[in-house]
Design a protein around this nucleic acid. Structure first.
Lengths: 363, 363
DNA sequence: TTGTAGGCGTTATCAA
DNA sequence: TTGATAACGCCTACAA
């Protein structure tokens, strides 16, 4: 491995001290224009790039984030992974990727492996943080030391004080999304609208379900328990749930399905096709997340879309804020803490992408 | 941010020098069992973990790899990303993820951002390395300094010598895979087998196409130019290509389709359904890559499957080998170079996953 | 078996 | 405006 060119090499080449080179590369003030030029010259001729590793060691940020997901193969996560990676790189950070399909234990294990790596923050995009039954213990432990960002998991920081200052959230208002979806269906004339959720104990299911109920009530429709089913966030589960719903006697059968994600929705399409039910003529289907692979489906799904780009940007913004709040010795008064608490949560409003899978009910 | 506990803290707590602590954590020989115990004790009570950053600075590996893909949202890449990440973590490495959908320029840009990060190796899983028309220039430049691993891109190292020692490949024998697929179809009785490729200038398309032609010849079937079409590696493209093929007059129409990846194959399913063609009764379809989201499709695709796990393991093995060859001052003779050249390419044999999308031809 | 001290590439604090 | 020099946390001869 050809030896890495160092700040010393550049200093020698430019005929200055390493301190000066450092100043140039950190664009600090008081350095002569002519000198700066000479340094830059030398640096580029030598192909010099400062070592982030050494820089980190002096106590600065590592400019590295870690992103924890349960499984990148699940179409939702590539979306957020891509978006976060992009935003993060645009801000000069790098992104470590962690897949922990094995639940809280594995998450903890992976996160532990991060310990010597000086990551500036951990971004958690899913997994056991979504479980409404028990809060993963490792989360709070981790936040005692380093900043954390939760995507779409509304867990409160365990206390105020230092850890509250390292606990940020970006929340997509999926309840509002569900409401928009239902209202769209209602406005098309649907009255029998079913909800097909993921596991009932997962936060994303719960919120969407709430929105569904609320919107029905708003629309003057009585929620029918028979039309609310729960399963997995998968295509096969969607297939099963939809099949069950579609085999109800015609007067109790739904004319529209609101699926808690696009994989479930894809399963619904499947089920409809299997039973010769035309979409959207005889059945409308709405999905959630508006993921990339929707391009594989026909008809393309109407889906509640969140701006992944916004999520990515929110992440880097939050990281920045937390770094400020922790490093620059800004006043740690209660007042400051309180403003932080509010500013450390970013809310994102989803929009409804209307496509070909929805239309007026039959008849 | 609570100050990180250092080797000094542990040393003090255990009443030894930092050198001893270091020895313990690097499991070096000659350290008294009792001392070792005391150190470990102190370390765990303090929650100490060695700083990989500082360690890296002393000239050792950073135990960090970078993985470059064009777009994680494309179902093939999550598979390799997941597998590589797993294998890599199991070996104590971390993985930086880079998405460069923007072609060679963006790839180069992203890779440049890696410069100060001391990554041990760059793993390239796709992108402009697949373009058979021109070899990305940044690749060779990069390999002049740091080790590189190509997944499924058969680019030779530019020369022997140092850079050859940093140029590894893991190659899935997709030609053999295509042959297996065709032979499967032939053995079912198919004679009119179509090939639906991605872009004709991409390596994956080329190899699979070669296998297709070879297998036909082997089976005593004359390749029909009309049955060989090229498009994109996407569902919509697959839909278009398949639609064209299925609208051929019945005597020239294929009874089986070999798609160059599963997204194309998904498009084929689509096309068949649109035209009321039953799969597999009237049309057999084979895909490539056997990706996760196949679970969304019906019928499940027969597909040429590669062991992603093997790919991941190969990657860490290769990284290890390259580190040996570069660091331990092993003899850099021509002979050593030659053995390295052969050992730095791992070949993986795909298998055919037979599922419900293939069957005997009609009639 | 254990400790001392120099070095890894930067940044930051003082002087000059 | 610039240059010495001490950290940063760890590894590694070399001594003891």
């Amino acid at each position: 491995m050809a030896r890495r060119t160092t700040i010393y090499d550049v200093a020698r080449e430019a005929g200055v001290s390493i301190a000066t080179v450092s100043r140039v590369f950190n664009s600090l003030p008081r350095v002569d224009e002519e000198t700066r030029h000479r340094v830059l010259q030398a640096a580029s001729s030598l192909g010099y790039a400062p070592s982030i590793v050494a820089r980190t060691l002096t106590g600065k940020q590592s400019r590295t984030l870690a992103l924890l997901v349960p499984d990148v193969r699940n179409p939702y996560f590539p979306e957020v992974t891509l978006a976060v990676q992009r935003a993060v790189h645009a801000a000069g950070y790098s992104l470590l990727l962690l897949n922990a399909p094995g639940g809280a234990e594995q998450e903890e294990q992976y996160v532990a492996a991060l310990r010597g790596r000086h990551v500036d923050a951990l971004v958690v995009a899913g997994g056991s943080v979504h479980d409404t039954r028990n809060r993963p213990a490792w989360l709070d432990r981790y936040a005692m030391h380093r900043p954390i960002i939760l995507i779409n998991a509304d867990l409160e920081p365990p206390a105020s004080g230092p850890v509250a200052r390292r606990w940020a959230r970006v929340l997509v208002d999926e309840k509002a999304g569900a409401i928009k979806a239902v209202q769209h269906l209602v406005s098309l004339g649907h009255r029998r609208i079913a909800f097909l959720g993921g596991p009932a104990h997962l936060y994303p299911t719960v919120v969407k379900h709430q929105g569904y109920l609320e919107a029905l009530t708003l629309g003057g429709i009585d929620p029918d328990p028979e039309l609310q089913v729960f399963g997995e966030f998968s295509g096969t589960s969607g297939l099963e749930m939809a099949t069950k719903l579609l085999s109800l006697p015609s007067d109790r059968r739904p004319t529209a399905l609101l699926a808690a994600n696009d994989m479930i929705a894809a399963g619904c399409l499947q089920a409809a096709r299997d039973r010769g039910v035309l979409v959207p003529e005889q059945l409308s289907i709405v999905g959630f997340d508006d993921v990339f692979v929707n391009s594989l489906l026909w008809p393309p799904l109407t889906s509640v879309a969140q701006s992944y780009e916004e999520i990515g940007k929110a992440v880097v913004r939050l990281v920045g804020q937390m770094q400020m709040a922790t490093s620059d010795g800004s006043d740690e008064t209660e007042a400051a803490d309180n403003t932080l608490r509010t500013t450390l949560v970013v809310r994102i409003d989803p929009t409804l992408q209307v496509r070909a899978s929805t239309g007026p009910p039959p008849g």
